[in-house]
């Protein structure tokens, strides 16, 4: 029983990292219907910026983290301005491909720096080890992830319900033409969505860096892990992203704990089912409930 609870808690902790990475992704999709394949690169850049500010510029870690989130938000804004804005009205495949091309460009930019290869670690800013309560254990970086996710979820909730900008974002997500006609600046909304996406991606990157060190491939891989989470939660639902992320985290934890043995019995040796189960779930969801747990079904008229 205690094993079960421990696996659950560890899964939730990892899931919060996915949720954090998924938030920005969903926001971009919600407002502009763009599937962003360069999310992983934003995560990596955010983490590396924080490292550079903390280690090279010798800023306090928390300040460095904050600055890197703002800078990555700026990068998101810039990317929207330079690339995505030109793609408004283009076929969806073109827009998706632009984000794939963008991912490659951002990779190239990282190769220009020493971060292109090798492993880096943040200076110690959290106490070592973790919280142990009655045989259950959570590491401090994982607590950081849970905290970050909670903060962002509250902020987003307030933002979408109360602020003018948030309401106009929802309006744009609902109907671009109609919101333009009532005077909402669609361009401003798109730019803002990308900026916020950069911000949350950087937050995710910093948490990943604190948990497991910084390595370009590892950070980018988090971007890929987000896809099952968002399909599960529904591509255009902010709470869905959080729930989806947490479910995928738990799924991975349980796969390692309970499924690896089953797989080896059917001849798939070596375990590692945590890497494939999210994608199996993704495929099954697409077969049976493509719009996810919380997503809105698209209704089309000829």
């Amino acid at each position: 029983m205690i094993d079960f609870v421990q696996n659950l808690i560890s899964g939730i902790a990892v899931g919060c990292i996915y949720a954090l990475a998924a938030l920005g992704f969903v926001l971009v999709y919600k407002s502009s219907r763009v599937i962003n394949f360069s999310n992983g690169q934003f995560i990596a850049i955010g983490a590396f910026l924080a490292y550079a500010l903390a280690v090279w510029a010798k800023l306090p870690v928390l300040l460095a983290a904050l600055l890197s989130m703002l800078l990555t938000a700026g990068l998101g804004f810039l990317v929207e301005r330079v690339f995505l804005r030109r793609m408004v009205g283009q076929p969806i495949i073109s827009v998706i491909m632009v984000t794939i091309g963008l991912a490659s460009v951002l990779d190239g930019l990282m190769y220009l720096t020493p971060f292109g290869s090798g492993n880096f670690t943040f200076p110690q800013f959290l106490p070592q080890g973790g919280l142990n309560l009655g045989g259950l254990s959570v590491s401090y970086p994982q607590l950081l992830a849970i905290g970050f996710t909670a903060i962002f979820l509250l902020l987003f909730g307030w933002f979408f319900q109360r602020s003018v900008l948030g309401v106009s974002m929802r309006a744009v997500a609902d109907d671009q033409l109609a919101s333009m006609s009532v005077g909402v600046s669609v361009q401003r909304v798109f730019a803002l969505a990308w900026a916020v996406a950069g911000l949350t991606a950087a937050a995710a990157g910093i948490v990943v860096g604190a948990v497991s060190g910084l390595n370009q491939d590892g950070l980018i891989a988090i971007g890929l892990a987000v896809f099952p989470a968002v399909i599960l939660g529904g591509l255009d639902s902010v709470p869905g992203a959080v729930v989806g992320g947490i479910i995928i985290g738990i799924l991975q934890s349980f796969s390692t704990a309970y499924l690896d043995g089953l797989f080896s019995q059917i001849g798939l040796v070596g375990g590692g089912s945590q890497y494939v189960m999210p994608f199996v779930v993704l495929l099954v969801m697409l077969w049976f409930k493509p719009h996810g747990l919380f997503g809105t079904e698209e209704i089309e008229r000829v």
Binding site: V208, A257, D260, V269, G270
Partner: peptide, 17 residues
């Protein structure tokens, strides 16, 4: 025998198993 690659954010389940 378990296969574990990069980006292993949490290994609690693995180590406990």
């Amino acid at each position: 025998v378990r296969e574990v690659g990069g980006g292993n954010l949490d290994n609690t389940a693995l180590l406990r198993a």
